[in-house]
C-alpha cells in the first residue's frame, strides 16, 4: 500500500489519487454534459435517468433540510456522486479509489466542516450562528468544539478506513488465493462503496442542516 507514486510539479506533489480524481471529474463532467445537452420537456430515457437521480437526491435532502434543500443540493449531490464513483473506481484493475487516501478523505471532511460553517453563517448570521455553541450552556462550548473536530475527523477516518481495508483485503486474498477468490470481497466492496458514500453524504447533509437550522425553532 505504500507504492503511491507522485509527480512533482514545482512545489506540488501530484499523487495518483489526484490524477484518479481528475479522471473521475472528467468522467462526471462529460456524463453531465452529455446527459444535459438536449433537455426537453418530454424527457428521453437518459434524461429520465438523470432526472430520477437528481430528484431522488433532492427528496433525500428535502427530507432532512426542507427549508434549505435547494441551497445545499449541489454540494451534497456532488459529494454523493463523487464518492460513489470514487469508491467504485477501486474495482477497476490497476486503479485505486481516491478515498483510500487519507489526504482525500480529510480534504472532503474539511470541506464539509467549512461548508457547514459557511451555510450556517450565511443563513443565520455570524453572531447568531456562533451563539449556538453557547447553548444550552456556555459550559458546553468545549464539548461543541471537540464535537466539531471529532466528527470531521471521524468522517475522514471512517471513509478512509473502510475503503482502504476493503482494497487491502481484496489484495491480500488475491495474493493468497488467486484470481476468483476476491470476487465476494469485490461484491462486498460494491455494497460498502455505496454504503460509505451514502453515509458520508448523509452525515454531511445532517451537519449542514444542523448548522443552518441550529437557531431556528422546531429545528
Amino acid at each position: 500500500m505504500e507504492n503511491e507514486f507522485y509527480v512533482a510539479l514545482g512545489p506540488l506533489m501530484i499523487s495518483g489519487s489526484v490524477i484518479t480524481t481528475w479522471g473521475i471529474m472528467l468522467v462526471i463532467a462529460c456524463l453531465a454534459w452529455i446527459s444535459t445537452r438536449h433537455l426537453e420537456r418530454l424527457p428521453d430515457s437518459v434524461q429520465t435517468t438523470v432526472e430520477t437521480i437528481v430528484s431522488a437526491i433532492d427528496e433525500a435532502i428535502l427530507a432532512v433540510a426542507p427549508q434549505h434543500g435547494r441551497q445545499i443540493l449541489p454540494f451534497i449531490a456532488t459529494l454523493w456522486l463523487f464518492l460513489l464513483i470514487a469508491n467504485l473506481v477501486g474495482l477497476i484493475p490497476g486503479l485505486h479509489s481516491p478515498t483510500r487516501d487519507l489526504s482525500v478523505t480529510c480534504a472532503l471532511a474539511v470541506l464539509v466542516f467549512f461548508s457547514a460553517h459557511w451555510f450556517g453563517i450565511k443563513n443565520l448570521g455570524l453572531k447568531k450562528y456562533l451563539r449556538h455553541y453557547l447553548s444550552p450552556s456556555p459550559i458546553l462550548l468545549p464539548f461543541h468544539l471537540i464535537s466539531e473536530l471529532s466528527r470531521t475527523l471521524a468522517l475522514a477516518i471512517r471513509l478512509f478506513g473502510n475503503i482502504m481495508s476493503l482494497e487491502m483485503a481484496a489484495m491480500l486474498i488475491l495474493l493468497v488465493a488467486g484470481f476468483l477468490a476476491p470476487i465476494p470481497i469485490l461484491m462486498l466492496h460494491i455494497i460498502e462503496a455505496l454504503v460509505q458514500a451514502y453515509i458520508f453524504g448523509m452525515l454531511a447533509l445532517i451537519y449542514l442542516a444542523g448548522a443552518m437550522q441550529s437557531q431556528q425553532p422546531n429545528s
Binding site: L12, T21, M25, A77, D101, S103, C106, A107
Partner: peptide
C-alpha cells in the same frame, strides 16, 4: 500518510467539480 499537496488539490478539485456540475 497524509500529503498536504493532495489535500489541497483535492479540495480544489472538488470545488471545481462542484462548479462544473
Amino acid at each position: 500518510d497524509f500529503n498536504v499537496s493532495t489535500f489541497f488539490l483535492e479540495i480544489i478539485n472538488f470545488l471545481i467539480l462542484l462548479w462544473v456540475l
